[in-house]
Simulated assay, not measured.
Amino acid sequence: MNTRTPSLLFAVALSLVACKKEPPSRWDEAATKAPAPAVSAASDIKPGSAFNALFPSEGTEGMSRVFTAEKPGYAEAKLRKDGGDVAVLSISDTAGDPQAVAKFANATDHLAGMPVVTVGKNQSALLVKDRYQVKVSSQTLDPEARKAWLKRFDLNGLASL
């Protein structure tokens, strides 16, 4: 027997073991069964900067407006008066998020023909063009005052995006 034979046999055995395919794990199977994200909806999401000009104007009712967040599909600003926060205003693009839109299905209140809902006791939200959610959140403003702030957004401009 050649002295190289054991080395050769070891190399062949090692390559066979290395080539052995493991059965798929439950994680591999779950990944193949998971639904693919809605690429068309996600790629159509508006940048947060597209919403900034649609917020109520600086100085409305003596309030300052401070933008606090901006990311794809979302922009947020705080309303401040006398150094304190009065409300948080936001616009979000609900493209690809049917749950966000679903909460407006049974809305009994409307503003300019668009559904308005109260979320919890401190938020009022409006759905523009079945896509853009405009929200006013406040610990101090009542539902009517929050609705008045919803009216101050440029809703026509938002609908035309």
Rank of each mutant, 00 (worst) to 15 (best):
T5E: 12
S40W: 01
A11F: 09
N2V: 04
D28S: 06
I45S: 06
S15G: 04
A18H: 01
A11P: 06
A11M: 14
W27Y: 13
S7H: 06
P24Y: 03
A30E: 04
A38M: 01
D44A: 15
F10P: 00
W27P: 00
P6E: 07
P35C: 04
T5L: 12
P6K: 02
A31W: 08
E29K: 07
K21N: 05
S25F: 00
A38I: 06
F10S: 11
V17N: 04
K33H: 07
P23R: 02
C19R: 09
L9Q: 13
A31F: 08
A36W: 07
N2S: 12
L9S: 07
V12H: 02
E22L: 14
A31T: 05
P35E: 04
I45M: 14
L16M: 09
S15A: 15
A42S: 13
A34S: 10
C19A: 15
S40Y: 02
P24E: 09
A36M: 09
P37R: 11
E22D: 14
E29T: 06
V12E: 02
L16K: 00
V17L: 10
L16F: 08
L14W: 05
A36D: 10
V17P: 01
P6C: 05
S15T: 09
L8Q: 12
A11R: 07
K33D: 10
A34N: 05
C19S: 12
S25G: 09
P23G: 05
L16G: 06
L8M: 11
R26Q: 11
A36K: 14
F10D: 15
T3H: 05
S40K: 10
D28Q: 12
P35M: 03
C19K: 06
S7Q: 12
A11Q: 09
V17Q: 04
R26M: 06
A36N: 09
K21T: 15
P23C: 01
A42V: 15
D44L: 11
S15Q: 01
R26E: 11
L16P: 04
T32R: 08
T3D: 12
M1Q: 07
A34D: 08
L8W: 07
A18C: 06
W27F: 13
E29L: 15
P23D: 07
A42P: 00
S7P: 01
F10T: 08
S25L: 03
D28A: 12
P37I: 13
V17E: 03
L16V: 10
N2K: 02
V12D: 03
V12I: 15
D28N: 09
K21L: 05
S40C: 00
T32F: 01
F10H: 05
E29D: 06
D28G: 12
P37Q: 10
V39C: 00
K21Q: 13
A18Y: 01
A13F: 03
A13S: 09
P23M: 05
A41F: 01
E29S: 03
S40F: 02
S7K: 08
L14I: 07
L9K: 12
N2D: 10
A41Q: 14
N2F: 03
